[in-house]
Computed example of a mutant assay.
Amino acid sequence: MRKSILYGLASIFLMAACETKDDYDASGNFEADEVVVSAQQTGQLLSFSVLEGAQLKEGENIGQIDVKIPELQKQQAEAAIAALKQKTGSPKDQTKVASRQLAVQESQLAQQIRERKRTENLVKADAATQKQLDDIDAAIDQMQKQINVTRQQIKLYNYNSATQNRGILSEQSPLAVTAKQYQEQINRGQIINPLTGLVLTRYALKGEMTAIGKPLYKIANVDTLTLKAYITGDKLSQIKNGQTVKIRIDQGEKDYKTYAGQIYWISSKAEFTPKTIQTKNERANLVYAIKVRVKNDGFLKIGMYGEVIFI
C-alpha cells in the first residue's frame, strides 16, 4: 500500500514537472542587430586596437589606415592653388599713371574754359578776333575728347585685369574641390566605431593590408536583445504590439531565470515552422513570428534559447 502511494506521488510530481517544463506559449532564440564595420580606405593598418569581447563606444577612434598618398596629393592641389593666386594681377600701376594724366588734362580743360571766357569778353570789346575764340573752342573740344579717351583707358585697364583674374581664378574652384576630396580620403583613414556595443568578431590585425569594403570587425549592441519566437495561429488573439510578456531561460537543470519583455513586432503572415523551433502544438505546420525586446543584465547571449509566457 505504502509503495503504491509512493509510486502515485512520484507520478504526480513527474507529471507536474513535465507540465511546468512545457508551460510556455512560444520559444525562440535571442538575436541582436550585428554591424560589420569595413574599411573605408585602402592601405596598411598602422594601428588597430580592437579585441574580441571589448566594449566600444560610439565615435571612438580605434585605428588608423595609412593615408600618405592622399596627403601628398592634397598638398599638391593646395600648392597649385597658391601658384594661381600669384598669377593674378592688379591694374593699380596702369590706372595710377592714367589717373595722373587725367588730372592734368582736367586742369588744362579748366584753364581753357577760363581763357575762353576772357577771350569772349575781349571779342565783345573788339579787343580780340572771332578766330581767337574759335581756336579756344577747338582746343576745349579736343581736350574733352582726350579726357574721355583717358577715362576709357582706365575702365579698360580695370576690365582687362578683372577678366584675366577671372580666367586664372576659374581654375581654382576645381582644384579646391580636388583638395576636399583628398581630405575626405584622409579622414576615412581613421577607423571610427559607429555604435556603442560589444565586439563579436575581429577580422583584421595591425600591420595587415586592407582595402575599401574589407571587413575589419563585427559589433552589436547587446544592452537590449531581441527574442525571435514563433507562435501558433490560435495564440494570435492573445497578443498585441507593446504587450508585456515574461521571458525565461534555463538556469541549471530545473530552475529558470525570468525577465520582463515587450512585444514590438508580430508577423503579418504565417510561415512554416523552422526546423530548429519546437512549438507546443506539434501538429501545427504554420506559425507566426514575433519579436520581443528584452533588457539584458549581462547573462543573455546571442543565440541563447528562450521561452515566452503571455501574461
Rank of each mutant, 00 (worst) to 15 (best):
S4C: 15
I5T: 14
Y7D: 10
S11K: 07
S11V: 09
I12W: 06
A16F: 12
D22I: 10
Y24R: 00
A26F: 01
E34G: 00
V36P: 04
L45K: 05
L46E: 14
S47C: 02
S47V: 02
S49C: 08
Q55L: 10
K57N: 13
E58V: 09
G59D: 04
I62K: 03
I62L: 05
D66W: 07
V67Y: 04
L72P: 06
Q75H: 11
A80Y: 09
A80I: 08
A82Q: 13
A83Q: 13
K85I: 04
K85A: 06
P91I: 02
P91Q: 03
D93N: 12
T95E: 08
A98L: 13
Q105E: 11
E106S: 08
E106F: 03
Q111T: 10
R114S: 12
R114I: 08
E115S: 13
R118G: 03
D126H: 12
L133A: 02
D134M: 01
D134P: 02
I136C: 00
A139R: 10
A139S: 12
A139T: 07
D141C: 07
M143E: 15
Q144K: 15
Q146Y: 04
I147A: 05
I147Y: 05
Q153T: 12
L156C: 01
L156A: 13
T163V: 10
T163I: 08
I168G: 07
A179D: 07
K180I: 00
Q181V: 00
Q181A: 10
Q183L: 13
Q185I: 06
N187V: 08
Q190I: 14
I191A: 02
N193A: 05
G197C: 04
A204I: 04
E208C: 10
M209A: 13
M209E: 10
A211G: 12
G213N: 02
Y217M: 05
A220K: 06
N221K: 07
N221G: 05
V222H: 04
V222G: 00
L225D: 01
L225N: 02
T226R: 05
A229K: 05
Y230T: 06
Y230S: 06
G233S: 10
D234M: 06
L236R: 10
K240Q: 13
G242Q: 04
V245I: 08
K246N: 14
K246W: 11
R248N: 15
Q251V: 11
G252T: 02
T258K: 07
Y259F: 14
Y264N: 13
Y264C: 06
I266N: 01
E282M: 12
A284E: 14
L286M: 11
G298V: 02
K301G: 03
K301F: 03
I302A: 01
M304Y: 05
G306I: 05
I309F: 15
